[in-house]
Design a protein around this nucleic acid. Structure first.
Lengths: 199, 199
DNA sequence: TGTACATCAGTGAACGCGCGTTCACTGATGTAC
DNA sequence: TGTACATCAGTGAACGCGCGTTCACTGATGTAC
């Protein structure tokens, strides 16, 4: 029998570090994400994580990559292939909710330049990017997919950050969802041209 | 004669600290923004800044507040009261350009929760928020101003961050401006409803 | 089954670092008379 | 104009801290025979 389910020393320190990092991130913000703190929380000596991560950046990139994969999962769960404005709004709500439920993780994912040395992170980043574009392409098959997908992604991404920074009311999940739906809906009801059209 | 134009000891350490902080920010990112580094760059002892800022947070908030005021200035310079899609796009381009020209400052302004203890920062934040909403209200006087202004701001804010994080091509200012204009324009040409309308 | 060995995950002491902040101080400037 | 004094911007030593990272090590596990 291979050591598949067995434990080897700690057992699975790599995963434990990731878990500890996620916890620290939400408790103390990204400033609290140090290798030493992660080791401490995993109940292991300060240098043990070096067996699994080359340095602090590698750990951070692994956390970010995991975040990207989870985000993709949440979007797919909201609706695998939205076609109507309501379906698209549901995906948008899931995106913003993800950000609000894991604010520090979301900031790490997007508010730091992506380390190009982490293949895992680069891959996960590209995947989420492609995923979002795919959704919009599916929703608007005839339109200029490139420009439109950028528009929709930017809109949703901006909504996430404005909520995160307290620029918009985040008192309850329903309030947030309502705002996101309204914003996405507004996209489909913008006057054909600004004010001069209304004389 | 009052000490209006005179120098008193350093002269104007408060402003010098702000200047040093801005430089450090763009050189080393927000991690490099320490009180000690600021003092060093201003050519002053490590503790001198405490005469002008209660603590590190106070300095950071002052930097952010200055950034908000500058951003408002840049937007107004692009167009004081946009009415057409092109005019609105010009303001959007100015917003994104501001972010790309001062990436670390922009991140400090938006990627950290606003410290509610800094009256200056809270004021500047509220001002830019109100300013952006005012612009959109002016451009769409008849529409649902609240939802629409959120939509437009989120779109532009999202464009800024996606560019900042390398999710969109930032190779030249013209390329960026083109993308922003396209996205804003897409806002006015979205199909009335997604794909089922095209059968 | 038992022994010898190789592997390598985790240890713990140690390094040098820059940080925020305190404190008692010094010394240049401004002001009252 | 000159002197005594008050103010307060800037100093410099010192504190304790947590950090990333190195290094030689130990000791549990897996493997070859």
């Amino acid at each position: 029998m291979s050591p598949a389910s067995g434990t080897y020393h700690h057992g699975d320190l790599r995963a434990a570090c990731l878990r500890a990092a996620r916890e620290l991130l939400e408790e103390d913000g990204s400033a609290g994400l140090s290798l030493r703190a992660v080791a401490r929380r995993a109940g292991v000596s300060a240098t043990a994580p070096y067996r699994h991560y080359a340095d602090r950046d590698a750990l951070v990139s692994a956390v970010a990559a995991q975040g990207y994969r989870e985000l993709a999962g949440h979007l797919a769960a909201a609706h695998p292939s939205p076609r109507t404005p309501d379906e698209l709004a549901a995906v948008a709500v899931a995106y913003v909710r993800f950000a609000l439920d894991r604010p520090a993780l979301f900031r790490v994912m997007f508010a730091e330049p992506c380390d190009p040395n982490s293949e895992e992170r680069v891959t996960a980043t590209a995947a989420i990017s492609e995923y979002v574009r795919g959704i919009v392409r599916g929703a608007f098959p005839g339109a200029d997919a490139e420009a439109l997908s950028t528009t929709v992604w930017a809109l949703v991404h901006g909504l996430a950050f404005l909520h995160l920074d307290g620029k918009l009311d985040t008192s309850t999940p329903d309030v947030v969802a309502g705002q996101v739906r309204a914003a996405v809906n507004a996209l489909f009801t913008v006057p054909a041209a600004p004010s001069q059209a209304r004389g």
